[in-house]
């Protein structure tokens, strides 16, 4: 029995080659390369579902446009979140510390003022 048959039990965990998938969809691949993609599809449900879905799109050029749009939005989304976080840090960061220090200093000052006033009035009684 040929060892290749053991591949039936394997699950593909190859990293994605998007260009290869697009070429497959456009029918540009040789029989050997097509088999390579189809093997990934047979071994992995993600590849299989994705290729079945992509095959439904008539104009294959649209796929590239959609993917580019989605990637742009993704990057925007990630950068927006980062910028928002940095802005918040900048807004909250130094002022929070400054406020805390001012409050502590006021407390210390108040303590000494009260102590002095009390001493001036003869408190505590000795």
């Amino acid at each position: 029995m040929n060892d290749d048959l053991l591949n039936i039990l394997s699950n593909s965990n190859k990293d994605i080659d998007n260009q290869l998938l697009m070429d497959y969809l456009s029918g540009k691949l040789s029989a050997e390369k097509s088999h390579e993609v189809e093997k990934m599809m047979a071994d992995n449900d993600l590849f299989n579902d994705a290729m079945e879905g992509l095959q439904q799109i008539r104009n294959k050029k649209d796929i590239q446009t959609y993917v580019e749009q989605l990637n742009r939005d993704l990057q925007k989304n990630l950068t927006k979140k980062r910028q928002r976080r940095e802005k918040r840090k900048l807004k909250e960061g130094p002022w929070g510390y400054v406020a805390a220090i001012v409050i502590i200093m006021l407390c210390i000052a108040a303590y000494y003022v009260v102590k002095k006033v009390l001493a001036a009035h003869g408190y505590p009684h000795s």
Partner: peptide, 26 residues
């Protein structure tokens, strides 16, 4: 998040395909 951006953009095509398979509308 930069790493996530690179990783996810590799899957955009496949995710779009999966969504197309189930939802049928581009």
């Amino acid at each position: 998040k930069e790493w996530l951006g690179i990783l996810l953009s590799r899957y955009t095509l496949l995710l779009f395909g999966v969504c197309m398979k189930y939802l049928k509308q581009e």
